[in-house]
């Protein structure tokens, strides 16, 4: 993978292992994220796609600062993010969680919720300034001013998520991690929030790391897509190329499994990639490629040897033995 000098965030060989006790005296780990490298350029929207247990949220939380890496490093604008992050880093990297019901304190008003980041990062602000800024933030996410006095319990799920986005914007961040921000919402509300997020990204020159399990959604927002399976990246590619020419058998299976609403989309689904098998437990993974048990094209080699990332096209990397000889398309 070539390094990008314009990268705002560089994830290098990141490992996140969680101990889960011992078996036969050997400490056991869940390898939630295993040797993942990913660069995110300034102003880019990178989509991180994976099913449950793929480690996508763990990866996002590590970038946000919730977990310490077991190995590897995360660099923000060239600075390694260590154990203690400075306030400037906390100001620059923000996160929006999946469940707006749990990410807003039910005992606070929206005003109090939006004020907190201001109080921490701009302590010089007066009360009036803060109030003005809160109104401004609410306007940014298209909520009326009067919502300042509402409690999260009294507003709808979509509105709660908008408030959570407003909170993330409060500190003027550069990078926002969006952890499935719309997966708990109906599509009509999702559309509104996604469009708003895209607009905000343009206006405020933001960089997004967008996590989702919804590939159709990803197609419409991300510039680049990365697929995570059992803690490892399987394929990284520009969105257009990713959906037109998916290479990895897992990606193909994923795309062909999506229920779609038009024949045009149906035509994009790879043929002969019907879903089979189960996602194995991330504890005690079999040797070789993590996907070989579900892969129609698996060979003896896939059962013994884990493939490594290889470029197959312009910015398009795949981690699969099928492409080991450099045979691109």
């Amino acid at each position: 993978m070539q390094t990008d000098p314009a990268a705002i965030l560089r994830i290098k060989n990141l490992k996140l292992y969680f101990p889960i006790g011992r078996k036969h005296g050997e400490p056991q780990y869940v390898k939630a994220v295993d040797d993942v490298s990913l660069d995110i350029a300034k102003g880019e929207i990178v989509g991180l796609v994976g099913e449950s247990g793929s480690g996508k949220s763990t990866l996002a939380y590590a970038v946000a600062g919730m977990f310490q890496p077991t190995g590897g490093s995360i660099l923000y604008e060239g600075r390694e993010l260590g154990k203690k992050r400075g306030l400037d880093i906390k100001k620059s990297i923000q996160i929006v969680f999946q469940d707006p019901g749990s990410s807003l304190n039910p005992q606070h008003t929206i005003q109090q919720i939006l004020e907190l980041p201001l109080k921490i990062h701009q302590p010089q602000m007066t009360k009036q300034d803060r109030e003005r800024r809160v109104k401004e933030l609410l306007n940014m996410v298209e909520l009326p001013d009067s919502y300042r006095f509402k409690s999260p319990a009294s507003i709808g799920g979509g509105e709660k998520q908008m408030a959570a986005i407003a909170r993330a914007l409060a500190t003027d961040p550069r990078l926002i991690i969006l952890d499935e921000p719309t997966s708990a919402l109906d599509v009509s509300i999702q559309a509104k929030i996604i469009n708003m997020l895209l607009k905000l990204q343009q206006q405020n020159h933001l960089t997004y790391l967008f996590i989702t399990h919804d590939l159709s959604l990803m197609r419409n927002i991300a510039g680049r897509v990365a697929i995570l399976y059992l803690g490892k990246l399987d394929e990284v590619a520009p969105a257009e190329d990713f959906f037109r020419h998916p290479r990895h058998p897992y990606t193909q299976m994923l795309i062909s499994s999506i229920p779609v609403i038009s024949d045009e989309e149906e035509a994009l689904k790879p043929a002969r990639a019907e879903s089979q098998g189960e996602i194995p437990s991330p504890v005690n993974l079999p040797p070789g490629c993590g996907f070989h048990q579900r892969c129609r094209q698996a060979t003896g080699r896939c059962r013994s040897e884990d493939p490594v990332m290889r470029p197959v096209g312009e910015g398009h990397d795949v981690r699969c033995h099928l492409f080991d000889d450099g045979a691109g398309a």
Partner: peptide, 22 residues
């Protein structure tokens, strides 16, 4: 019609406005 427009498509092209209100 609104529901169909709001659904993200695998073929891309962005998502339309959705349906306002609740």
């Amino acid at each position: 019609i609104g529901l169909l427009a709001a659904a993200p498509r695998l073929s891309g092209g962005g998502i339309q406005s959705g349906i306002y209100g609740s």
